[in-house]
Nucleic acid binder design. Sequence first.
DNA 1: CTGATAGCTGACCATACGGTCAGGAAAAGA
DNA 2: TCTTTTCCTGACCGTATGGTCAGCTATCAG
Lengths: 234, 234
Amino acid sequence: MVSYQAIEPDQAVNENLKAKRMPQPAPEPLRPIRRNEIRQQNEQLILQAAEKVFAEAGFGGATMQLIADVAGLPKANLHYYFTTKEELYRKVVSNIFDIWLHAAESMDNAPGPVEGIGAYIDAKMEISRRHPDGSKVWASEVMHGAPVIQDYLETTLRDWTAGRVALIQGWIDAGQMAAVNPDHLLYMLWAATQHYADFGHQIETLNGGPLTDRQWAEAKDSVKAMILRGIGAA
Amino acid sequence: MVSYQAIEPDQAVNENLKAKRMPQPAPEPLRPIRRNEIRQQNEQLILQAAEKVFAEAGFGGATMQLIADVAGLPKANLHYYFTTKEELYRKVVSNIFDIWLHAAESMDNAPGPVEGIGAYIDAKMEISRRHPDGSKVWASEVMHGAPVIQDYLETTLRDWTAGRVALIQGWIDAGQMAAVNPDHLLYMLWAATQHYADFGHQIETLNGGPLTDRQWAEAKDSVKAMILRGIGAA
DNA sequence: CTGATAGCTGACCATACGGTCAGGAAAAGA
DNA sequence: TCTTTTCCTGACCGTATGGTCAGCTATCAG
């Protein structure tokens, strides 16, 4: 079996659990544990660990035990918050989808393609840099036929896409850019930006290490320059 | 657990096995079974089934039993030809890598970027169309940190990339295209073309069905037009 | 024809997995 | 204080998985 690099369970440990297991010298801990917060905090902790593990191993390769170790919680505790592995996975994917949709708003209310598509590329490149795991989970899900989020594709994404296609067509009709096929332009935008997350390991290997701030800026500029020139908007 | 669509085991059945299990009316079957051929044939059969299953379920989600069913062979027979799941997977990935490298030759011996990069896009789009499973397996492997083909990335791919970067730089120096960053141009080429395989399901969903011949042609033209214009070569 | 060898496979095994549950601990409410 | 509710978890279970192996059959060289 392929041995994915082991993740140190102690990398992320619930601070509250730590505190609980040792005598507390202070009569009142600085952050009193309120019930409401516990649930929110642990769910977040589990979701973060799950995103990492799902991205690294895929749905089939990920194990609840490993997610639990990364989160620093007993496995049974995961099943207390998320009944099944699929329910946890579904929540992870849906979170990512929300981030994406939110970032997509940057395209609207722009006077033209240079600003609109430029801002969209900026936003998507930033997501690739800050949420590479999320991007990978999404990519993995779609590659496997979207067994879990097919309905999202057919409703939300479809509607969003139709709206942006109309937006782009409007720019074309107004002579603000070349008459490219809007669908394929969107595909290229998604592909070019998400590539830096999904294939980040390949890029880092070729680059001889993680991209520096300067290199990320150059990546962003390169993508923007090529695409904007490619659609005759620059 | 996510239920990936079941694959009908009988979709691909070894014709020789079929023949063996039923009385042969003809004294000499048209294709006599030679020992040499059996090995080659079955290995090919298993590799094809494996590529399909690995692409659909990922390494962790794929099972030897399912691969065996798709290949129409008993599971134990798989282990006769490929000792471990990882060995089989490694062979699948390495086969894909070879196809990619071979297609990459289309970029060489071109008088300029229009012909060279145009031909490369053509070749890669054709691979995305004809070998989508292979592309997905590669993507999955890289996304998971390339646990199996890291050495390929560091040697073969690195060398190939360096060569093409020099080639592109030569075109830039000769004034045949704009002064784009060659590395990021390569990333965009990979991203834009492989997207049609890796995210094929998403594209098909948005498209309301598989791309037609005409739509594939338009996709190819769109990618070529945008990129070639984007690098100032058209 | 005969021994040797490659191809084949049902039955089996140890392990690891997702998920369950009884029961304890801690906080909130009364 | 007592009761209720939420939180927590070690131990356990049925199942499915990757892999093995003894023993069979089919081919081939001599």
